[in-house]
Computed example of a mutant assay.
Amino acid sequence: MNIIFEYHNVTASARLEEFTTKHINKLFDKYDFIVRADVFFKTENVSEENKGKICNIRLSAPGPRLFSESSTGSFEASAKESIGELERQLSKRKDKLRSH
């Protein structure tokens, strides 16, 4: 299980990586078929205060890759939202794997 972080127009942050790694490891523990996670943090110029900090997460697992993107006012909230979406996708994927 690998977690790769990429930053676009954002300064790398050990605290942010630690936070995200902690939450992604919970997914790894629950869904042992995950191979790798790619996490992208970037900023976007927007007029709204509660948007613009984007977190994209791509998971490699059997079948098509899983992807989630969210944009909120902080990277932590964006990461949590993306991970929550991936949790739902992984649950559906696990049900499909179990039925075969």
Rank of each mutant, 00 (worst) to 15 (best):
R15T: 08
L27N: 11
F5V: 14
G73V: 02
E48C: 00
K53M: 07
L86C: 03
K94N: 05
H8M: 09
F40K: 12
S71C: 00
S78Q: 03
A79D: 08
A37P: 14
E49W: 00
E87L: 02
L86I: 00
T11N: 10
K51F: 02
P64V: 14
A12Q: 09
I4R: 15
A14H: 14
S47Q: 08
N45H: 15
S74E: 07
I3T: 12
V39P: 04
A61R: 06
N50P: 03
H8F: 10
S71V: 00
L16A: 01
S99F: 07
T11S: 08
R36P: 15
F28L: 05
R15E: 11
G73R: 07
F40T: 14
I54E: 01
V46T: 10
N25Y: 02
G84A: 11
K26W: 04
F5W: 13
M1S: 14
G73C: 03
E6W: 10
E48Q: 05
K51N: 04
S47P: 12
K96T: 08
V35Q: 15
T11H: 06
K30Y: 06
N9F: 08
A79W: 06
V10S: 06
I4G: 07
S99A: 11
I83G: 02
S70D: 11
E76A: 09
N56S: 10
R98T: 13
S68K: 03
A61T: 13
N25F: 03
E6P: 06
E87P: 01
R88I: 02
R15F: 07
F40G: 11
S99K: 11
K94F: 04
S71N: 00
